[in-house]
Simulated assay, not measured.
Amino acid sequence: MSSQVEDGSESGGGSGGGSGGRYRREDVARAAGVKVRNLRYYQERGLLPPPRREGRIAWYSDDHLTRLRLISDLLGRGYTVNGIAELLHAWEQGGGLSQLLGLEREMTRDWVQEEPVTLTRGDLRELFGPTATAADTRRAAELGYVTIDGDLVTYPNRRLLESTLALVRQGVPLAEILDAGEFVQAQAAAVADRFVGLFRRYVIDAAGVDGSAGRAGPAGPEGLERLSATQLQHITAAVAALRPVAGEVVATEFARAMARRVDTEVAELLRTEQ
């Protein structure tokens, strides 16, 4: 049997993007941000359970996706593949792997529900008109607003596409919108860093994951092994609580800032008309 059939990568229908927690090989790799060939390697090394098979098709689940994201995170922090295998094995033996994966799922899942839109380049030209250029599309891809696959361009967020179109139709050049988007990204990253810093200081460290208690790091899996199920549950609950709080603070402050700025602009216009 070919590797394509074994890994469920044959062409045709199916979930298309892992809808309902069912992913083909390419879909789960893309969602986890890993190379397709790594899936079999992780399975061979005992890091990833085999997919569930239905006939000739192999399906990966949300649990596979969560575990892949955890593996990628640990590799990025300096763990070796053997070290990750030891860590996962230790948690499986202790019965706490489900809590660890639950924490990873809560930490990495999307903060907003996004509806993707895929268009051809011709569709884009028709939507945006002559003011949008190929350079604009490339820059949008660099900023993460779109992904390009041959002649297809996918917007991960329909609302963002519609908002961009509304601005373009009001006469704002797409290049200027992208400039603004890049600025907003930088500011949003700073705000996120601030909230994560608070979370690290007052939630994670308070749960005992500090230097003295064995903060997880590239030296080895010992720090994470020392996390109890209770600590993991506490951190997971805190992450879930952080989502609406952080979003509400940012949305409220932005709305207040816009209201003040618009009031100032309107007052200036009224003075000009007098």
Results as ranks from 00 to 15, higher is better:
Ala241Thr: 03
Arg256Ala: 15
Ala246Tyr: 02
Asp263Tyr: 08
Thr272Phe: 12
Ala267Cys: 10
Ala251Arg: 15
His234Val: 14
Ala251Val: 01
Ile235Val: 14
Ala255Ser: 11
Ala237Ile: 00
Ala238Ser: 10
Ala255Tyr: 03
Ala257Cys: 06
Ala238Trp: 01
Ala257Trp: 05
Ala246Met: 08
Arg243Ile: 04
Thr264Trp: 05
Thr272Ser: 11
Val239Pro: 00
Thr272Trp: 10
Arg271Pro: 05
Leu270His: 07
Ala240Lys: 14
Val250Gly: 03
Val245His: 12
Met258Ala: 15
Leu242Val: 01
Arg261Asp: 09
Met258Gly: 10
Val266Trp: 07
Ala259Arg: 15
Ala267Arg: 12
Phe254Leu: 15
Ala241Leu: 13
Val266Lys: 13
Ala251Ser: 09
Thr264Gln: 10
Thr272Gly: 10
Ala267Met: 09
Val245Ile: 14
Thr264Met: 06
Val245Tyr: 09
Val250Thr: 04
Ala240His: 04
Asp263Glu: 10
Ala255Cys: 04
Thr236Pro: 01
Leu269Gly: 05
Gly247Gln: 14
Val245Met: 10
Arg256Gly: 02
Thr264Asn: 07
Leu242Thr: 00
Glu268Trp: 07
Glu265Tyr: 07
Arg271Ile: 08
Leu269Pro: 02
Ala240Leu: 10
Thr236Lys: 02
Leu242Cys: 03
Ala238Tyr: 01
His234Asn: 08
Val245Asp: 02
Leu269Glu: 03
Val262Gln: 11
Glu268Ile: 05
Leu269Asp: 02
Leu242Trp: 02
Met258Ser: 09
Ala251Pro: 00
Ala259Cys: 06
Ile235Leu: 03
Ala241Ser: 04
Asp263Pro: 01
Val262Arg: 15
Thr236Met: 03
Leu270Phe: 06
Ala237Leu: 07
Glu248Gln: 15
Val250Ile: 15
Arg271Leu: 14
Ala246Gln: 05
Arg256Tyr: 09
Gly247Thr: 02
Ala238Arg: 00
Ile235Glu: 00
Ala241Gln: 06
Phe254Asp: 00
Leu269His: 11
Val249Asp: 01
Ile235His: 00
Thr236Leu: 03
Val249Phe: 14
Asp263Lys: 11
Val250Tyr: 05
Thr236Asn: 04
Ala259Val: 08
Val266Pro: 05
Phe254Glu: 05
Val239Ile: 12
Ala255Gly: 01
Ala246Arg: 09
Phe254Cys: 09
Leu269Trp: 07
Ala257Gln: 08
Val245Pro: 00
Arg260Val: 07
Arg271Gly: 14
His234Arg: 14
Ala259Ile: 05
Ala237Gln: 05
Val245Trp: 06
Val262Cys: 13
